[in-house]
Amino acid sequence: MSASYPLSSPSLRRLVGYARVSTEDQLNDAQVDELKGAGCAVVHEEHGSGASRTRPVLAKLMRDLGAGDVLVVVRLDRLARSVSHLLEVIEHLDKRGVHFRSLRDPIDTSTPQGMFSLQVLGAVAQLERTLIAERTKAGMKAAKARGRLAGNPGLRERRPEAVRAVAAARKRAYLEELITSAQTWLPTVRRLRPQHSWDDVVRILNRKGHDWTVERLRRAVHHLVGERLAEASLIKRSPKRPPEHRLMTLVAGIAIADPDLTLIEIGQQLERMHERPPRGGRKWQASSVKALLDRARQLGLVTSGPMPGS
Rank of each mutant, 00 (worst) to 15 (best):
A3Q: 13
A3W: 05
S9I: 07
S11I: 02
R13N: 05
R13D: 02
R20A: 06
Q26K: 10
Q26H: 02
D29P: 07
D33L: 13
E34L: 00
L35K: 11
G39F: 01
G39S: 06
V42Y: 15
V43Y: 06
E46I: 08
H47N: 11
S49F: 06
S49M: 14
T54P: 02
V57Y: 02
L58I: 11
G68K: 10
D69V: 10
V70K: 09
L71W: 12
L71K: 06
V72N: 06
V73M: 03
L76H: 00
D77Q: 07
A80K: 03
R81M: 15
V83F: 04
S84T: 14
K95H: 15
K95T: 15
R96G: 08
G97N: 14
S102Q: 09
L103D: 05
D108C: 03
T111V: 12
G114F: 14
S117F: 11
Q119H: 00
L121I: 08
G122C: 13
A123M: 14
R129F: 07
T130N: 10
E134D: 08
R135Y: 01
R135Q: 00
K137Y: 06
K141A: 06
K141S: 10
R146E: 12
G147F: 02
P153G: 07
G154A: 11
G154I: 12
P160D: 08
A162D: 04
V163I: 15
V166N: 08
V166T: 11
V166P: 04
K171Y: 14
I179R: 00
T184E: 00
V189I: 08
V189R: 04
R193M: 07
Q195H: 02
W198C: 07
D199Y: 04
V201L: 12
R203L: 13
G209T: 13
W212Y: 06
T213V: 04
V214S: 00
R218M: 09
L224T: 01
V225T: 10
K236N: 13
R237L: 05
K240W: 09
R241L: 15
E244C: 10
H245Y: 03
R246L: 08
A252C: 03
I266P: 11
G267M: 01
Q268K: 02
Q269K: 06
P278S: 01
R279D: 11
G281T: 08
A291V: 11
L292T: 10
D294R: 10
L301G: 07
P308M: 12
